[in-house]
């Protein structure tokens, strides 16, 4: 394909920008790896999976460095939140697009946008002051996996809802008119036409929401109790990898500090695995 000269420079410009955007992750990983080297050298990667517990402040020899319970914590809380937030978020987008009368739909959308912007500190504070005492009355100690799942659900719902709604909105009107002309009911149109057409956008929404759930720090730290253990029930307090970094970074020295960067690398590994799995599922979904 031959290009006019102006187009060539445009293409090179967008290629350059794309490379820059794509390169940021590499920079971040390189930086984490660099800081993690002392701990990996002195403690060894194995002990991050096999040690009895997590007591990194005692130094490389006497300390304990097991990250597995925190990996479990991160995965359970994120999975729980995404499982709840996805159907709710899609329902919310459908409400906005197809069910609510015009003005109500717009007002509702504004409300969801506002929720998207409430700082995680505020969610965390609300969770700590309102939510965890409620859960405590039911099953102590209140600060728990459940509290984390609920808070994260509220936090990632707007992401799912807004992005799903915007992809529902970009479905060509002709599709919907066609379905209506065939005499399909509202739900049949949504199920048969709207949702399939918006699938890739909804998928994007869920990926972004998962990323947010895995990476959320402040709110999770405030409501989840931060005990290093594999959760036995939703009422158990749990520590996530992010909370581990935020809790200890300010006071960690030497190997302890470096071990927290290993925590960061572990987090990146989880994100990479999730993204790869999502991409695979996505490809299969699109083929089906």
């Amino acid at each position: 394909m031959s290009q006019p000269r102006g187009d060539a420079s445009l293409i090179w410009a967008v290629r350059g920008l794309a490379v820059a955007s794509g390169g940021i992750v590499l920079l971040i990983v390189a930086f984490l790896a660099l800081e993690a080297i002392p701990a990996l050298r002195e403690v060894g990667l194995r002990r991050f999976f096999t040690d009895a517990s997590w007591h990194p402040a005692d130094g490389a020899d006497r300390g304990a460095f097991n990250l597995v319970p925190m990996v479990a914590g991160t995965l359970t809380v994120a999975t729980g939140a995404v499982l709840i937030a996805t159907p709710l978020g899609i329902a919310s987008a459908l409400f906005c697009r197809f069910y609510a009368p015009g003005a109500l739909g717009r007002a509702y959308r504004r409300l969801v946008e506002l929720l998207a912007g409430i700082p995680s500190v505020v969610y965390g504070f609300w969770g700590l002051v309102v939510l965890t005492p409620l859960i405590r009355q039911w099953q102590p100690p209140g600060q728990s996996l459940l509290a984390g799942i609920l808070i994260l659900t509220v936090m990632i719902l707007p992401t799912v809802a807004l992005l799903s709604e915007s992809s529902l909105r970009s479905i060509p009107a002709a599709y919907l008119r066609g379905a209506t002309a065939l005499g399909l009911s509202r739900w049949a149109t949504i199920r048969g036409v709207a949702l399939p057409a918006a699938r890739s956008g909804i998928f994007t929404a869920v990926i972004l929401a998962t990323g947010r759930a895995v990476g959320e720090t402040m709110a999770v730290l405030m409501v989840m109790g931060n005990i290093v253990q594999v959760p036995g029930s939703v009422f158990d307090p749990v520590r996530t990898l992010t909370a581990n970094i935020a809790l200890e970074m300010g006071y960690a020295m030497e190997v302890h500090r470096s071990a927290l960067f290993v925590t960061g690398l572990m987090l990146m590994a989880i994100v990479v695995v999730l993204v790869a799995a999502n991409a695979r599922l996505g490809r299969e979904g699109r083929r089906a």
Binding site: L221, M222, G225, N226, I227, V228, P237
Partner: peptide
């Protein structure tokens, strides 16, 4: 450090 068994850990 490893003797303490808390129910919650805070910042």
């Amino acid at each position: 450090r490893d003797e303490i068994h808390p129910s919650l850990v805070i910042g």
